[in-house]
């Protein structure tokens, strides 16, 4: 029930922002549309929590999520600058390759989010996830080392700790 109510409120607020004003007809049409979407697809938007935690844990997770945004953009901009540097070179000096990096996350949302963050950062690109060995296959534009710990430190350790704390 909480799942459905939160999905309804989220959809209605997105509708109000996209329509640009708050008036009676916007609210009527918006709540009708959100109600239909909520009835059919509410289990796709939010998941139900399995273990109960006290409320300040969720507040802490939300604060960490907000703190993570500038960290991510700092990493993304520094990675984008190094990819741009490769674009301006006369002779290509990089060494592309596909490497396998093990991860310690187990939660499905966390795994998906980590894969998307790796893809979003310029220079690394997730190709696949191996369920058996719990490893990502990552295309890396400039393979600098083949040692496992070094590779992990360079590609995913900067996001893995944040995701591991937020989605546990």
């Amino acid at each position: 029930m909480l799942q459905k109510i939160s999905a309804f409120v989220f959809l209605l607020s997105v509708w109000i922002i996209f329509s640009g004003k708050i008036s009676v007809d916007v609210l009527i049409v918006g709540s009708a549309a959100s109600l239909i979407v909520t009835l059919f697809f509410s289990d796709m938007l939010f998941r139900e929590v399995h273990q109960k935690l006290p409320w300040y844990h969720y507040l802490r997770k939300f604060a960490l999520l907000l703190l993570f945004v500038p960290v991510f953009f700092y990493e993304a901009i520094s990675a984008a600058l190094s990819v741009s540097k490769h674009a301006f070179e006369k002779e290509h000096s990089f060494n592309p390759g596909i490497v396998k990096v093990k991860t310690e996350l187990t939660d499905v949302t966390g795994l998906t989010l980590l894969a998307n963050l790796i893809t979003l950062t310029p220079g690394t690109l997730t190709l696949d996830y191996d369920r058996v060995e719990k490893a990502y296959y990552i295309h890396w534009i400039d393979v600098q080392t083949l040692e496992e710990a070094e590779m992990k430190k360079k590609i995913i350790a900067r996001f893995e700790r944040w995701i591991g704390v937020i989605f546990r």
Partner: peptide, 29 residues
């Protein structure tokens, strides 16, 4: 400026995967 760099990268990088890396710059940054 970063969009311009993406066009340059799309033209100059050697194969499909490295060009995808160049394309990732434009939407993220």
């Amino acid at each position: 400026f970063f969009a311009l760099v993406t066009v340059l990268g799309l033209l100059r990088f050697p194969d499909v995967y490295t060009r995808i890396h160049a394309g990732a710059v434009v939407l993220t940054i």
